[in-house]
Simulated assay, not measured.
Amino acid sequence: MTRSRLVLPALAIAVLATAVPSAAQTPLPATPAEDPLDARDARRVERMEKVVRELRAIVFQLRDTGKPVVVQPADTDARMQELSDRIGDLEQTLRRLNGSLETATFELEQAKRDNAALKTQIQGLADRLAAVEQAAAQATPAAGEEQAAAPGSEGNPTEAFAKARQLMLAGDYDGAEAAFAGFVQTWPDGPKSPEARYWWGKTLSVRGAHAEAASAYLGAIRGWPQTSWAPDAVVELARSMVALKKPQDACRTLAELPKRYPKAPANVTSRATATRTQAKCA
């Protein structure tokens, strides 16, 4: 705050203090008839008396304290108000900046959380895919090895496959099971081997051999072949998992169906929906 210092010379103030009060203390006439001054002169005298009193107070303060007398400028209140207004403006600006900073910080944290959630989701999908592929890779033809050599296991693979299919269409599931098992044993890497494993799994499911059926279905869909029977093999694998009380594996298998076979027939997708309900998939 700006202050102006006014140090009054002791000698001049003393003169004012001794000379002016004598005139100021002179009694005025008591009645208007004896008053030689008009109303305007009377007010002027009153102002002069006020100034004299203030000067005397300053002189006495200087005499008693021995310190310079500080006289406050007339516009001190105005300047204080101006400074107060400026401080208020600065506080409002600071509040706005703080609000903007808090908003930016919140948006940044939200973006970080969204990014982390997206990474988790991607990792979850990758893990599910890896689990299904690992299960398919670990599948063993143990059930097939236990089967005895079936009719048609020798000779032409096309004829052997057709004979096994004919047995199944005729309702001879035991004969079809033996025929497809023999086919897989004889031609494990043949072009018809995945489909033979699929039909073999069907015959195993009919007699409730769910573990052997799951192994056959896994062998059938290894590599996710783009064939007409592959989507149904995925659903049958999930159904076997449910029967084996492995609902999580069933759900992981069903999760791959729309990604691997987006154009699966309606009857397959409806069975997949029913199986998902049985497994209580999320």
Rank of each mutant, 00 (worst) to 15 (best):
E82C: 01
K163S: 15
P9Y: 06
L97Q: 05
A130V: 13
E159L: 12
T203L: 10
A243N: 12
D114E: 09
W187N: 00
R96H: 05
P9C: 10
Q110V: 11
A266Q: 10
P247V: 05
E49T: 14
W200S: 05
G219H: 09
Q226H: 14
E145G: 06
R63C: 11
A216E: 02
A104Q: 04
I13E: 03
M241N: 08
L8E: 01
A74N: 09
L90F: 11
I221N: 00
A230K: 05
N115C: 03
D127V: 10
G182Q: 11
F183P: 04
A170I: 09
D41E: 07
G190N: 08
D189P: 00
G175Q: 10
L118D: 14
R165H: 04
A282G: 04
G144Q: 13
T269L: 03
E34A: 15
E82Q: 06
S153D: 13
A148P: 14
Y261R: 11
L37M: 10
E146N: 09
K259T: 15
K263Q: 14
A142Y: 01
P157Q: 09
W224N: 05
G190Q: 09
Q134W: 05
R260C: 05
T65R: 04
P141V: 14
R56Q: 11
Q134D: 03
V268A: 06
R165K: 04
R3F: 12
A131D: 09
T105H: 03
W199S: 02
L28H: 11
A104T: 08
I58V: 13
K192H: 12
A104P: 02
N98D: 09
A216R: 07
F60P: 00
E195P: 02
P32G: 11
R197N: 13
E133I: 03
V20N: 05
G66Y: 11
S205C: 07
R3T: 15
D172S: 15
A17I: 14
M241G: 02
A238P: 01
D38C: 13
T275G: 01
L108K: 15
L129V: 12
